[in-house]
Design a protein around this nucleic acid. Structure first.
Lengths: 343, 343
DNA sequence: TGTTAGCACTCAAAATATTGGAGTGCTAAC
DNA sequence: GTTAGCACTCCAATATTTTGAGTGCTAACA
């Protein structure tokens, strides 16, 4: 059977109506609002076809129809087509304009949640692949060094290094250690700090123990798992606005995912990687998402790039009957707002 | 009417039973489990008295009784009495043993939620009253300084200072600026940084614009509102385990409080201040809590002290039928664990 | 005088029955 | 190909009944 123009109109009408109301849509409703001027009986015939083709389904006999995942997929693909220019715009360059990335991301995620009325998640660039700009240590007391690392994009990480006290340090020695560290390590990412590098470093100093402790701290701070990578969420409570996400213990599971964040991080990062080379906005509908908990949700992700390989992701999580059109629009709007913020 | 021994036993039995089951308790149950060897009829007479006195109430005629807030209050006060030694123990000194306070607090709050099955919240010491240990700035590029501040308790804050470029800086100039800053500001809290201080500082330097920018950054970073002060939460989803907190849109409100955190911060801080000079553990039952959203909850808070005026609070939020005994116990246990952690 | 058995009564919650209406599929006529 | 009409289905809302836990009161008892 073929999906002709009339069927497309009917399918779209069903979906749009269902997005608004969340109730199954009956033939009479479509007959009235599709603009096709067909009687409900005719519509019924077409709906029967659409159901057979898998685009819509009945929750039970004698109920109206609701879109299936396949139906949503068709709708979203169509939408992506017609918003192509906006979508391609999202990828943007804002490297080095960043001053307080953290603050910006927090604001961003908040706006996103408020504007969409869905839950929002934003990840900052991964530090694992980010490169060290400079390193600085300073003496806190006889057994402690304060370690400050600045990464590309002006992201700062700090740690305290505990010393065993076997090597005496003073201001000048710390200064030379700093010079050595910067000389050897700046421009590298954690992944670049190999055994070989370390050996090379140690060959150039008398303070071997101290250097060992510092480097191990550096790796510690930067070599963190998914879960700990910068991830901000907002609007988790928005899911309470959609009954289909709240029934039984769905709500509990979803909220829990937002509380622990690592599942979310994996989801969003996964989207980023899978999106490699593809369009920068991706939509997962229901089961398409890799997460069990999200089987009743749709997830829309957009990646952004700060340049120099620093990438992050913005995501919106809501019910399957999400207002996809609005979400796509907002994602591209936020992009330009971020541009403003980093001017 | 007097609350004699027998009435106390009955009241306690009602409360304990209700804590376990969450269901109204009837006279027959008490007759069986109180150990009093009285018939249900006698118990009924006593319950009638207890109700008149306001310790218990009936959700509706011909239902069993549940504790009123007054009843809970009586029970908790009694409990506090018998656990006095544990409770007084909670106040502890761990100043300067702290190495990564942040990590510890995160672990603490997680443990607390897991052990109690309630929601947990922990606040770090307020930075406003914390004193500066040392300050360090370093040149990032011609228009940017990296500012690192270490506070008492080895809490580190960083910021980037934007310069207008009117004053040229080099390594040695930054060094002298650092010395000056430490000389003038270390040992002070933000509250101590007055106009007078600033003037005094400026009198000693040629880099007036730079110093102004730096000090304003320092104040910015440290002089933050309640909401931004260190606050960690965990186990918000535990509230789904208690139906009485989930019905209608209670859950939504509670979870939302956990998401935004500032209300929570206010609650917990408030407890800390109101607890000034009193016992270090406090219990708020239902309406006793200053927060609307928490009217159906009980909140137990304990304050800890790192010494030198650095105080924080640990809180547990759960249903009114909270296992108060267990919570009090766990709070004192966690305290000793923290001691261990900081050895 | 305090305790208890017994009984009539109450009321929420669970189980069951009733109804209404939105929606469908099918058929026959246009 | 389109449509009116009709019998049929089934959810959801409402009403009804049943059940049982619990109460208060009274009268008898130790």
């Amino acid at each position: 059977m073929e999906l002709d123009q009339r069927k497309v109109v009917i399918l779209t009408t069903i979906i749009k109506n269902y997005l608004e109301t969340g109730e199954p849509v009956g033939s009479r409703t479509i007959s009235k609002y599709s603009g096709l001027n067909l009687s409900s009986a005719t519509i019924r015939n077409e709906m029967s076809d659409l159901e057979e083709m898998g685009y819509i389904l009945q929750p039970h006999t004698s109920a109206g129809r609701i879109p299936s995942d396949k139906g949503y997929r068709f709708y979203v693909d169509q939408l992506m087509e017609s918003h192509q220019h906006e979508i391609d715009d999202v990828k943007t360059e804002m490297f080095e304009k960043v001053d307080r990335l953290e603050t910006t991301l927090k604001t961003l995620v908040k706006n996103l949640a408020q504007n969409t009325n869905y839950a929002a998640v934003v990840t900052g660039p991964s530090i694992r692949t980010n490169k060290i700009k400079f390193i600085q240590t300073s003496l806190v007391d006889s057994k402690r060094l304060l370690l400050v690392i600045m990464m590309q994009g002006n992201i700062v990480k700090t740690a305290t290094v505990l010393l065993d006290g076997s090597e005496e340090l003073d201001f000048n020695r710390v200064l030379s250690i700093n010079m050595l560290l910067n000389d050897e390590l700046s421009g590298l990412s954690v992944e670049d700090i190999t055994e070989g590098r370390l050996a090379q470093l140690l060959a150039r100093t008398n303070h071997k123990e101290t250097i060992k402790a510092i480097v191990s701290s550096i790796v510690d701070v930067l070599d963190i798992k998914f879960g700990d990578s910068q991830i901000y969420t907002s609007g988790a409570t928005n899911i309470f606005k959609y009954p289909e996400l709240t029934e039984s213990d769905n709500a509990s599971k979803l909220i829990s995912a937002f509380e622990t964040k690592d599942e979310l991080a994996a989801l969003v990062k996964g989207a980023e990687e899978r999106g490699e080379g593809k369009r920068p906005i991706q939509v997962y509908i229901g089961d398409e998402s890799p997460l069990q908990n999200m089987a009743d949700c749709s997830v829309v992700t957009a990646s952004y790039e700060l340049g120099n390989g620093l990438k992050g992701t913005i995501g919106v999580i809501g019910p399957k009957r999400m207002d996809y059109e609005k979400v796509l629009e907002i994602l591209s709007k936020l992009q330009s707002e971020m541009d403003q913020a980093f001017k």
